[in-house]
């Protein structure tokens, strides 16, 4: 068996299509998921009541069950339960949106709850209005603290899109399989796809490491 890279360029368009689909799914599920995360985070911060208990359960549940199970459940059960026809891509986006909502909600909650107690007390004892405390004292440092966890989750999400190939979403891994079947150049296409994933995710991982180190440095100061 030889490693024949010449077969790759002729099929670049298909792979690029797959890559674009991967990115589109990521962006859409990020957007929908962030919206859901906001509600879940509010629910968890509200401390008691039905909204709190439901948020806690939803966050725990979707953070604990395997992504594959979630994807298959939505793909094969949701259409039956609601009598609706849903494309694989829509199902995939729904599954990943739930994943984003639960994880990002938890990241946001942790960011808000790690607010420095002393700074809050100082702001309150100055009589600063509540909405100003949120906008000026709580949220800006919370966003800064959340950044590494958020980007880290983004890398997990990008990796999770590959799982959508199992329900037939034509993203990169799916395309690589199809092209491998057609040309028998499995190794080449798989390696190329792995390289593309690495090229996208590695810079994000570097950012995470850098941002974490900076935060640790700030804390020790």
């Amino acid at each position: 068996m030889t490693f024949d890279v010449n077969v790759l360029p002729t099929h670049f368009p298909e792979l690029i299509d797959g890559l674009l689909l991967t990115l589109r799914i990521c962006l859409l599920s990020m957007a929908f998921g962030a919206f859901g995360a906001l509600f879940l985070c509010l629910g968890k911060l509200s401390g008691r009541g039905s909204g709190y208990h439901v948020s806690v359960f939803v966050i725990d549940f979707f953070r604990t069950i395997p992504e594959v199970v979630l994807i298959f459940w939505i793909y094969s059960c949701l259409p039956l339960l609601f009598g609706a026809r849903l494309s694989a891509e829509v199902c995939g986006i729904m599954a990943l949106s739930l994943l984003v909502a639960a994880n990002v909600a938890e990241i946001m909650r942790a960011g808000v709850q790690s607010t420095d107690q002393g700074q809050l007390e100082a702001a309150m004892s100055l009589g600063v209005p509540a909405h100003t405390i949120w906008l000026r004292i709580v949220i800006p440092p919370a966003l800064q603290r959340m950044a590494p966890a958020f980007v880290n989750f983004m890398t997990e999400l990008i990796k999770a899109t590959s799982l959508l190939s199992t329900i037939g979403v034509a993203e990169m891994v799916y395309q690589a399989n199809v092209l491998g079947n057609r040309t028998f150049a499995y190794v080449e296409f798989l390696t190329l796809v792995a390289t593309i994933f690495f090229a996208i995710i590695f810079p994000l991982s570097l950012f995470v490491r850098h941002a974490e180190a900076r935060l640790a440095h700030q804390k020790s100061r």
Binding site: S162, V173, F198
Partner: peptide, 15 residues
């Protein structure tokens, strides 16, 4: 850490 486990899995099994 920076590639999906699915890709690693298929790579190890088929490639």
């Amino acid at each position: 850490r920076n590639t999906p486990i699915l890709v690693q899995l298929i790579w190890i099994h088929f490639a």
